[in-house]
Simulated scan of single mutants.
Amino acid sequence: MATGTGTSRDGVSAAAPPDGPVPRRVRPPRWLDLRLVLGVLLVLGSVVVGARVVTAADATVPVWAASGDLAAGTVLTEEDLVATSVRLDDAAAAYLSTTTRPSGQVLGRAVSAGELLPRAALEPGSDLVQLALPVQAGYVPPSLARGQLVDVYAVADPAAGAGVVSGDVDLVVGGAPVQAVSGRGEGVLSTATTTVQVVVAVRADDAQDVLSAIGGRALVVVVRESAEGPVTATPGSTAPTTAPATAGPTG
């Protein structure tokens, strides 16, 4: 029988080799390991929280804004508005979404360029009509443009200038928004006597009175500094004794 010790060839006793490590059975991985589950939950939680933060930071809505200064009484067209995305939160319902087409509606108050279009600025109904007035180019301010608020005077003789006496100048349209300006020539062919068509908005009931008050006389257009104010037609009102300098001849 073999023993735990032996004798080498030279007579020296040799100790038996130590026992090796006991092999351990390798366990298959457990998919429901608690640490694995906690790690997955942490990752999912981070993704959800990050998505909420990004969504909240980009919670914008597309609404209409004015592309330029528009006076009260302006009948809106597509060119007057530009779509813009802004974050309004609970105030979004107070402004006009791009899903609504406001073309043809009338502004109840002035709106500045870049200002968001509030629903309250639109009049539910309007009795305004567009009245085309022929004006000599010399009596139209060079900067006259759609959306401005103007007064229109009828004069007996535009060539008289400051010499016009009281009673010869009448305010026929007061605080009317300009809807369009056409016929204004440019360059060397443009003269002070070139006829410019200025389209203004007046109440339908006033249109006939305005035309009667003009009575074939020449017209002078004066731009108001402020775009605020109601649209009024005041046929026959006496104007100042001299026409304002902003409407004087340019040529």
Rank of each mutant, 00 (worst) to 15 (best):
T98E: 02
A57Q: 13
A91E: 14
R52C: 00
A65D: 06
A51C: 00
V53S: 09
L41E: 05
V43G: 07
L128I: 10
E79T: 14
R30A: 11
A71H: 10
D89F: 07
R119I: 07
D33T: 05
S103A: 13
V63M: 10
L32K: 07
G104I: 04
V49W: 12
S126E: 12
A72R: 11
S85V: 06
A94Y: 02
E123N: 05
R101M: 00
A56L: 13
A93G: 07
E79K: 14
A91I: 02
L96F: 04
A91M: 09
R27M: 06
A59Y: 00
A94M: 03
G68N: 09
V75C: 06
D33Y: 04
G114A: 02
L128A: 13
P102N: 03
G73R: 12
A59N: 11
T100V: 15
S97P: 08
R24V: 14
G125S: 15
L38R: 14
L117E: 03
V43A: 14
G50I: 07
E115L: 05
D80H: 12
G45S: 08
Y95I: 10
V106A: 13
A93P: 01
R87S: 15
D80C: 07
V43S: 04
G50Q: 13
E79W: 06
V49K: 04
V54T: 03
L76Q: 05
V49Q: 10
R25K: 11
S67N: 14
G125V: 08
A65W: 08
L96R: 10
P28C: 02
R119H: 13
A94W: 01
L44T: 10
Q130T: 15
T60I: 02
P62G: 10
G39H: 04
V47D: 03
G114I: 02
A94Q: 09
L41G: 12
L70I: 11
V54R: 09
R87E: 15
G108N: 06
D90M: 00
G114R: 04
Y95S: 11
A93I: 00
L122P: 01
S85N: 10
S67V: 07
V43C: 08
P29M: 01
W64T: 08
L70S: 08
G125A: 14
D58R: 10
E115C: 05
G39P: 02
A92D: 09
S85A: 15
L70W: 05
T100E: 15
R52A: 07
V54M: 01
